[in-house]
């Protein structure tokens, strides 16, 4: 039987809601899961979630638009978030930012035309002792220099193609342990 993408999405969401408990407090974990899997929370998703949780879709929109890690717009496969807060600023985040813009050919807040990279600012990533810091999806990079920006982007690019499905796992790990 043919299953449309929308039906699949709906089934996914229904399963998630059940897992997180069938009430309002499941809303954010469900939206986070959709964001994680599909890269954005579409209007259709908001409608479906609202139906299942018996709340108005506007409520879902209100919540989704409040949190900066949940987005309405389709973003790139890799979301690069550079910390702009004071300690990283003092350690030279401006130059890293410039180099990121140069290497990707986009400004902050934009996505590359091929849909692979989105460049964003983040507020304090909690890596102030090792700045400048940036997050690529869930992976943290510290002591980034304009020179190492290229290596980081290359590391992402190697995950394209046949390895793309594993990216979520490989880009989510602990910082390197104590030497």
């Amino acid at each position: 039987m043919l299953v449309s993408e929308r039906e699949q999405l709906r089934a996914n969401i229904e399963r998630q809601v059940k897992e997180f408990g069938n009430d309002r407090s499941a809303l954010i974990p469900v939206l986070q899961d959709v964001q994680h899997k599909y890269g954005h929370v579409s209007e259709y998703v908001m409608q479906v979630v609202a139906d299942i949780l018996h709340i108005h879709p506007v409520e879902v929109y209100g919540v989704a638009s409040f949190y900066s890690f949940i987005g309405h717009k389709q973003k790139g496969r890799f979301i690069i978030r550079l910390c702009r807060t004071i300690s990283c600023d003092m350690q030279g985040k401006d130059r890293v930012a410039r180099q990121l813009e140069n290497d990707l050919g986009i400004q902050f807040g934009e996505t590359t035309p091929d849909g692979n990279f989105t460049l964003e600012w983040a507020n304090c990533l909690g890596m102030c002792d090792q700045g400048p810091a940036l997050l690529v999806n869930e992976r943290i990079y510290t002591k980034v220099t304009p020179e190492t920006v290229h290596d980081i982007l290359e590391e992402c690019r190697t995950l394209f193609g046949v390895y793309a499905l594993q990216e979520k796992e490989t880009l989510c790990e602990l910082p390197t342990p104590v030497k």
Binding site: I28, Y67, F69
Partner: peptide, 23 residues
């Protein structure tokens, strides 16, 4: 439970709101 990038959720009542699925 994971936060979603909102500094204000460190305030305890905002944190609880967030846990309950609110802004």
């Amino acid at each position: 439970r994971m936060g979603a990038g909102a500094y204000i959720c460190g305030e305890e009542t905002a944190l609880i709101e967030s846990l309950e699925g609110q802004r």
